[in-house]
Computed example of a mutant assay.
Amino acid sequence: MSHRQYVVQTTDVEKLNVRLLSISFSKDEKDWRSVLHTHPFTELFFVVAGEGKFLFREKSYQIKTGDLVIIPPYMEHTEQSTRNMPLQYYVIGLEGISFQPESGKGGVQVFCNFDNLSLISDLFAQMLYEVRNQSYGSDKICQNLLEVLILRIIRSQHLIPVAISPTHMTKECAQIKEYLDANYADQITLDTLTELTHMNKYYMAHSFARYTGQSPIQYLNQRRLQAACTLLEDTDHSISSIAESVGFSSQSYFTQAFRKKYGTTPIRYRQENRAATD
């Protein structure tokens, strides 16, 4: 009989003050349109199958099986599958923690590929199983599995956990965001939003930027440009008609804003995206 005993080494690991908010498993079946959105908490997005893109406000990244994306609170994002290679993925919502590289450089979004994919995938799967079945101790098991997952991510990817306090968007800021999302095609000014919320104009703009990272007018223009992209891809409307329909005061201003954000003209964008889908 062979026998080998290992002594557990004690390490000084700081307690993780993190709470599991939600977990889901999804498969892109083209039954809904992917749009940029935000959450007031950190998300872990883990790809178990398929290929595609993960998009933020200014950048997009190619993702594939085994990739993990860490999305900080209030960071606009969405995902898109490659044709005939639909993404399948887990998403976990976390409260109380975010991450940054040990170097302190780079963005707070982390993209990586693990050596032991089955181990990482199993941790997600076990948490989902516990949440679905809700048996005795499921919440405790999920919390412990979550901490194991986070420690493995930190160790593998050389990250530093950063404690963050829950900062939920105020009712007024949420009202502004909802109004802009629904009425972006209208002529909207800061005065319009001031009348809507009965807030001081400059305090209102500062508060909105604190939660979204953009001023109300920047967010409004971004929302208009997103709508314009959809029209450029899916319709044959003229550029001037699209500019007017999404709320821009002139075609020249629309083209200028479009080029600044996407690095190309609306016409070129239409040609490239039509060619990609043909």
Score class of each variant (00 low, 15 high):
Lys140Thr: 12
Lys140Gln: 11
Lys140His: 08
Lys140Asn: 09
Lys140Met: 10
Ile141Val: 15
Ile141Gly: 00
Ile141Ala: 09
Cys142Glu: 08
Cys142Ile: 14
Gln143Ala: 08
Asn144Val: 12
Asn144Ile: 13
Leu145Cys: 07
Leu145Asn: 15
Leu145Ile: 12
Leu146His: 06
Leu146Glu: 02
Leu146Trp: 03
Leu146Tyr: 05
Leu146Gly: 02
Glu147Cys: 08
Glu147His: 08
Val148Tyr: 10
Val148Thr: 11
Leu149Met: 13
Leu149Gln: 10
Leu149Lys: 11
Ile150Tyr: 02
Ile150Leu: 12
Ile150Asp: 00
Ile150Arg: 00
Leu151His: 15
Arg152Gly: 06
Arg152Gln: 13
Ile153Val: 10
Ile153Trp: 07
Ile153Asp: 05
Arg155Cys: 10
Arg155Asp: 05
Arg155Ser: 15
Arg155Gln: 08
Arg155Pro: 00
Ser156His: 06
Ser156Met: 04
Ser156Ala: 12
Ser156Ile: 12
Gln157His: 14
Gln157Met: 13
His158Trp: 03
His158Ile: 00
His158Ala: 03
His158Gln: 13
Leu159Ser: 05
Leu159Pro: 09
Leu159His: 08
Ile160Thr: 06
Ile160Met: 06
Ile160Gly: 00
Pro161Asp: 05
Pro161Gly: 08
Pro161Lys: 03
Val162Pro: 03
Val162Arg: 06
Val162Phe: 00
Ala163Arg: 05
Ala163Val: 08
Ala163Met: 11
Ala163Leu: 14
Ala163Thr: 09
Ala163Asn: 10
Ile164Thr: 03
Ile164Ser: 05
Ser165Leu: 12
Ser165Gln: 15
Ser165Arg: 10
Ser165Pro: 01
Pro166Cys: 01
Pro166Trp: 01
Pro166Gly: 07
Pro166Thr: 09
Thr167Ser: 15
Thr167Pro: 04
His168Phe: 05
His168Asp: 10
His168Trp: 04
His168Ser: 03
His168Gly: 07
Met169Phe: 02
Met169Glu: 06
Met169Pro: 09
Met169Ser: 14
Met169Gln: 12
Met169Lys: 15
Met169Thr: 13
Met169Leu: 04
Thr170Glu: 01
Lys171Met: 04
Lys171Leu: 03
Lys171Gly: 02
Lys171Pro: 10
Lys171Thr: 09
Cys173Val: 11
Cys173Asn: 13
Cys173His: 09
Cys173Gly: 12
Ala174Pro: 03
Ala174Tyr: 03
Ala174Arg: 15
Gln175Phe: 13
Gln175Val: 15
Gln175Cys: 13
Gln175Trp: 06
